[in-house]
Amino acid sequence: MTLAKLADLTIHYGQRLAVDGLSLELAAGEITLLLGPNGAGKSTTLSAIAGVIMPSRGTITVAGQDLATAPRSARGKVGFADQPPQLYEFFTVEEHVGFVAAARGADPAVVMATLVDLGIDKIAKRPCRELSFGMRQRVGLAAALVGPVELVLLDETLNGLDPHAARAARATLRTRAERGAAVLMSTHLLGVAERMCDRILVMDKGKLVADRRGAELAALLAQGPSAVEDFYVSLIADEGPA
């Protein structure tokens, strides 16, 4: 089942074209990795789906609702972990995640359950402003997951997590996907791709240059431990940041 649909998504930053006519569909129950060099347009794409920036052209539909015409109900189904995580510095972890949950109309009980899932319930009472980089990433992830979220967008959120935290995050994301959520995450950690993804998208210069899923992806992963890296390098020329 298609949960989100991007049609001809085009985004300009002034004169610069950041995303160039991107069209794709995200399916429920699928974890999709968005790869690409720095400046490829990954974060811009995620921000647009989250409703943070407006596209210059094209449409974004989440759970059948157009983000432009029904932004409120569409946003209620989207959880976005920004980079860097946007936290209310003067809230505690529990308060920050609690606020996001309340905005999504979620039961307050889900707040602590989400913190437990991600192994951050012990820091629930700590102010966000005193958290380390990795802890902030985990709180950002908790805020993205809390409540009735159907589409999870993660912008390099797994970077900086210790092995236990990364494992808890992967398990939680897999559980969410099994319950019907779609996960779209950008990362440069190609090992993560090999371990947890159902689909790989590669972007370069604002365009989608590769899309692998199902049997194609299985065949790629079967080529060995560095198969994804080799595949990526074969697609993207090393030209430095755009």
Binding site: A50, R75, D82, Q86, F90, A103, A143
Partner: peptide, 16 residues
Amino acid sequence: RPPIELPRVSATLPIE
């Protein structure tokens, strides 16, 4: 302004 208002967070939440 931050730290009271985080426009990027508000933009992702179902709050008018």
